[in-house]
Simulated scan of single mutants.
Amino acid sequence: MSLIHPTAIVDPQARIDASVTVGPYAVIGAHVAIGARTTVGAHCVIEGHTTIGEDNQIFQFASLGAQPQDKKYAGEPTRLVIGNRNTIREFCTFNTGTAQDLGVTTIGDDNWIMAYVHIAHDCVVGNQTILANNATLAGHVHVGDHVIIGGLTGVHQFTHVGAHAMAGFASHISQDVPPFVMVDGNPLAVRGLNSEGLRRRGFSAERQAALKQAYRLLYRHGLTLEAALARIVALTGDYPGAAGDIELLHGFVAASRRGIAR
């Protein structure tokens, strides 16, 4: 028995695994590919050059792969790529990329994306993130692994949010958010280290201690950014087990083009 509801409109050129379930009145375009065991809810529209991996659950009324909301867009065959095991709730809108960037919007694996989330053109979302209801990512936003973004939060175009960071409800993010920190508010304020998140993800006592020291250097000691970065690098001597975390934090801050939330 077919797993595609008879009222769904699926272009015959679409590449859909035989185990995919498609609900009533869904519309799937010619350039769409959907992997095994993914479910597509009623009234979803999946169009454009969109590739969706395995074991995703896409709830009703989602719109995936539509043209970017960019006035420069001229019909180029840009893409949307979604990984595996993502939950995409009702009324989410994910757009394809633009020729002015890499031409692809990318969503990783194991993400929990709640209702009405908008992910604009050329965004890169990592793995195991949580985007709460009405979170909005403008174009070219990068979100690292294990990030949590609170409901009704807006992220300005070209802004980066580092891995393991957390943004509270209704925040206005217009500067880069370093890995491991918590922010919230409008205007945005840094509230502390995301200690509870690190503990829940199994960070060792050494890694947590190193990140606490790095946070203090960056935010509490009154140092210039350059001086804080130099002292953060030196922490690897005292906390060798946290060398990867320190490198991640240092590299993110050093590479920031918009400036970090501070």
Rank of each mutant, 00 (worst) to 15 (best):
S2Q: 14
S2D: 15
I4A: 11
I4F: 05
P6E: 13
A8V: 14
A8R: 05
A8I: 09
I9Q: 11
I9L: 15
Q13Y: 13
Q13C: 09
A14S: 12
V20K: 11
V20Q: 13
V20I: 10
P24M: 07
P24R: 14
P24H: 15
A26N: 02
I34H: 01
I34T: 02
A36G: 03
V40D: 01
V40I: 10
V40Y: 07
A42W: 14
C44E: 06
C44G: 01
C44V: 12
V45M: 05
I46D: 01
E47G: 05
G48V: 09
G48D: 08
G48R: 09
H49I: 15
I52T: 05
I52A: 09
S63R: 09
L64E: 05
Q67V: 14
P68W: 01
K71I: 15
K71V: 15
E76M: 06
E76V: 04
E76F: 01
P77Y: 03
T78N: 05
R79Y: 02
L80K: 05
L80G: 09
V81E: 10
I82D: 11
G83S: 04
N84G: 04
I88S: 04
E90V: 02
T96V: 14
G97Y: 00
G103C: 00
G103V: 00
T105W: 01
G108L: 11
N111L: 03
W112M: 15
I119R: 04
I119D: 06
H121A: 01
D122W: 13
D122E: 12
V124K: 14
V125E: 08
N127F: 00
T129M: 10
T129W: 07
I130K: 13
N133A: 13
N134V: 12
A135M: 13
A138Q: 08
A138D: 03
V141Q: 09
V141H: 13
G144L: 06
H146C: 12
V147G: 03
I148R: 10
I149V: 04
I149N: 04
G150K: 05
G151A: 05
G154E: 08
F158G: 07
F158I: 02
T159D: 08
H160Q: 13
V161C: 03
G162Y: 10
G162W: 10
A163D: 14
A163V: 11
A165I: 11
M166V: 11
G168T: 05
G168I: 06
F169H: 14
A170M: 09
Q175Y: 13
V177Q: 02
V181Q: 03
M182R: 04
L188I: 15
A189C: 06
A189Y: 11
G192H: 02
L193M: 03
N194Q: 02
S195Y: 08
L198D: 02
L198H: 01
L198A: 00
R199D: 07
A205C: 11
Q208D: 08
Q208F: 04
Q208E: 05
A209D: 05
A209L: 06
A210S: 03
L211M: 10
A214Y: 01
Y215I: 08
Y215T: 03
R220Q: 15
G222T: 00
A230C: 01
V233C: 10
G237E: 07
Y239I: 06
P240T: 05
G241I: 08
G241K: 02
G241S: 06
D245L: 09
D245C: 13
D245H: 11
L249D: 07
G251Q: 01
A255Y: 00
A255Q: 09
A255R: 06
S256Y: 00
R257V: 00
R258C: 00
G259C: 03
A261T: 11
A261M: 08
